[in-house]
């Protein structure tokens, strides 16, 4: 047996494979495909205080080894979440984490208070990095002053584990990771999507209704890996890595670079069982290498001369 578990503070995760918010619905959409409770945690679709319809169609464009999206946080709001979604997900035998968003700091704070009162939600991911909303989102996560302020205010009211999801659309992601750590975040997750664009040449117009969108998939992986490595070497809190992870090998790269855990995102669109296959692949790797504790892998390249 190998030990796959890790912790954020006193919150235990049975394994390091989580799902990325916005790519896993509310988890229930995957019930047909596998037992969601096998994962270390699931991050639910981004939630806001109010109902949001998101951006106009088209909101997706396929690009080489990836895709752009401009969904824009479509969700039914926290009231609907509490009454309709929470009852369905609260009994999953895994850490169910809500991704919280807002246009203003007060929205984040109110939402964090609501989520804090939900017994079976042990952590929240503060999304200050969505590139597809006109207000809030990435605007918070790309300005050090507003990033600090929103994390500080949410931290005051949110008593469970707070994960801050960072934007890659900055000059130095380390700066933002350090701000999160300074303000009491328990963990940082990175990267959110990279701001990108595509043009339909035959129609001579942008592929997305919003013109720009967030790039995800294997196309972003080397950038994401570099950023995770930088951040893991700059902060002491656990780092959750993501960005184009399709296979266990990809996930292991992030962990060797210093991620304590990974989130599987776009891969779930192509193979709904991708996350659980990645989990199995990590376990097999450890058995083959004779590694008994996942912690031996985390940041391995930073400890040895390579």
């Amino acid at each position: 047996m190998v030990n796959l578990g890790f912790s954020i503070g006193d919150l235990y995760f049975k394994n390091p494979v989580l799902t990325a918010s916005g790519t896993f619905g509310n988890g229930t959409e995957f019930d047909d495909f596998f037992d969601v409770s096998r994962l270390g945690g699931i991050l639910l679709k981004g939630t806001t205080l109010e109902n949001r319809e998101g951006n106009p169609y088209p909101r997706m464009a396929e690009t080489p080894s990836g895709m752009l999206n401009s969904v824009g946080l479509q969700n039914k709001g926290i009231d609907y979440f509490e009454s309709e979604i929470y009852p369905k997900v609260k009994n999953y035998d895994t850490n169910v984490i809500v991704n919280i968003n807002g246009s203003y700091i007060d929205d984040y704070v109110s939402l964090a208070e609501r989520i804090n009162s939900l017994e079976n939600i042990p952590a929240a991911e503060l999304n200050i990095s969505c590139p597809n909303v006109k207000m809030g989102g990435m605007a918070f996560g790309t300005n050090p002053v507003s990033a600090r302020e929103v994390i500080r205010e949410v931290r005051k009211v949110y008593r469970k584990k707070l994960i801050v999801k960072l934007s890659p659309n900055v000059t130095s992601i380390i700066e933002f990771a350090r701000i999160a750590e300074d303000e009491g975040a328990d963990s940082v997750s990175l990267i959110n999507t990279l701001l990108g664009m595509a043009i339909d040449v035959s129609k001579m117009k942008p592929s997305l209704a919003t013109i720009t969108g967030g790039l995800s998939g294997p196309a972003v992986k080397p950038v994401a890996l570099r950023m995770v490595w930088q951040v893991a070497n700059a902060v002491k809190i656990p780092v959750i890595g993501m960005g184009g992870i399709m296979t266990a090998t990809d996930a292991l790269e992030f962990m060797l670079a210093g991620a304590s855990a990974v989130q599987v995102g776009t891969a779930s669109f192509i193979d709904p069982q991708a996350s659980v296959k990645i989990l199995e692949g990590i376990e097999n790797f450890m058995i083959q290498k004779g590694i008994t504790d996942i912690g031996e892998i985390v940041g391995f390249i930073n400890r040895k001369s390579v």
Binding site: G22, F24, G25, E29, M60, E62, T266, P272
Partner: peptide, 13 residues
């Protein structure tokens, strides 16, 4: 246009 096909990406609205 869709990415996932089973209701999680919210692209094909």
């Amino acid at each position: 246009l869709m990415a996932c096909g089973f209701g999680v990406c919210l692209c094909c609205v």
